[in-house]
């Protein structure tokens, strides 16, 4: 009993504990700089984009599939929105039309994977390459900047009081996705499919349909993230989303360790992204050179996952 109690705690809360330790460490080293309200608000803004793209990834991983096209989907989203803005279309159109397009691309991803029962890994890798081509076709390969109206930056730069709109959007999306996964039939069905596709099918769940929905929602989230990046920086880089692709999987994987069942979940994804974001924030505040930041961040990701596995004890 005594032996297993700390193990159980480690297993269930290991990752959250790691996050707490990181926050505590930074707070002790630089209490005046790190541990301030301004900085915490900053952190929420800095992780907001990663969290949003990772929430989409969480959905696809909850049905036990992968979408490797999230990075280029985000880049495409930004480029499409920026190009529409340059054309002088109303802002609502600039943001909603790309979202609709991404929904269709996601549907296509899901349909191919579910209908032909091919590996999502390969399918979406192919889609990612296709999308990079489309970006090139649309933008000629260059960053879209010239002629973007000021109003395009509204979503990415507005603040409500001291709190950036992006942070609020992040909280809204996390709550939305948490509710979707935990409290709707859709979420329950995603988890059922992710747990055992054959059982889900025999239990009368339309596996193809729900997988396709997961892919479509994931693509929309990637697109939304890409558009918000463009809105925030006031231009659309053709590779803006690429950097988020691996990070989002890191966030979701760390997030899986938050759940006792080891499955992807919205709260966990938030914790995962927070660990990555707070490390980047804190280490920069310590004015640590970038290469040291990489070494420390990578090391902590590995440690977090090991700690969680170790918590499983001899039942493994």
């Amino acid at each position: 009993m005594n032996r297993s109690a700390p193990k159980k705690i480690l297993q269930t809360y290991g990752t959250v504990l790691a996050l707490a330790v990181i926050v505590l460490a930074f707070s002790l080293i630089r209490p005046d700089k790190f541990c301030t309200l301004t900085n915490f608000i900053n952190i929420t803004r800095q992780i907001s984009l990663l969290v949003m793209i990772s929430l989409g990834t969480t959905l696809v991983m909850s049905v036990n599939e992968f979408d490797l096209s999230v990075g280029s989907m985000a880049s495409l989203g930004g480029v499409m929105a920026a190009l529409l803005a340059v054309k002088g279309l109303p802002m609502a159109v600039c943001f909603l039309l790309p979202a609709a397009v991404s929904f269709c691309i996601g549907l296509l991803n899901g349909w191919i994977v579910a209908r032909f029962r091919v590996l999502s890994f390969i399918t979406t890798l192919g889609m990612s390459t296709v999308l990079s081509g489309v970006i090139y076709l649309l933008s000629g390969g260059a960053t879209v900047f010239e002629g973007i109206p000021k109003s395009f930056s509204f979503l990415g730069t507005t603040k409500l009081g001291r709190v950036p709109l992006l942070s609020i959007l992040m909280v809204v999306f996390v709550v939305l996705f948490w509710f979707l996964l935990e409290h709707t039939t859709l979420g329950r069905k995603f988890y059922a499919i992710g747990g055992n596709e054959e059982t889900a099918k025999i239990a009368g769940i339309r596996v193809r349909k729900y997988k396709t929905i997961a892919f479509a929602l994931c693509a929309v989230m990637a697109c939304v993230t890409g558009m918000l990046i463009a809105s925030r920086v006031g231009s659309a880089n053709t590779t803006a989303g690429d950097g988020y692709f691996l990070q989002s999987y890191a966030a979701v994987f760390i997030g899986c360790t938050v759940s006792r069942k080891g499955i992807p979940n919205a709260a966990g994804t938030l914790v995962g992204a927070a660990i990555l974001g707070i490390l980047a924030n804190g280490l920069t505040i310590l004015q640590m050179p970038s290469y040291m930041q990489n070494i420390i961040t990578g090391g902590i990701i590995i440690l977090a996952v090991i700690a969680q596995r170790a918590g499983h004890g001899d039942a493994a």
Binding site: N39, R232, V233, N237, T239, G241, D242, N281, Q287, Y291
Partner: peptide
């Protein structure tokens, strides 16, 4: 020299924003 920071090439504007925001906090 306060610090040198490496900016990745994929989305330099966004990343530089985050880095500088953090550095401003470190040197308020």
């Amino acid at each position: 020299l306060i610090t040198e920071q490496h900016v990745p090439a994929e989305q330099p504007i966004n990343d530089a924003q985050d880095i500088v925001q953090n550095l401003l906090l470190a040197n308020p």
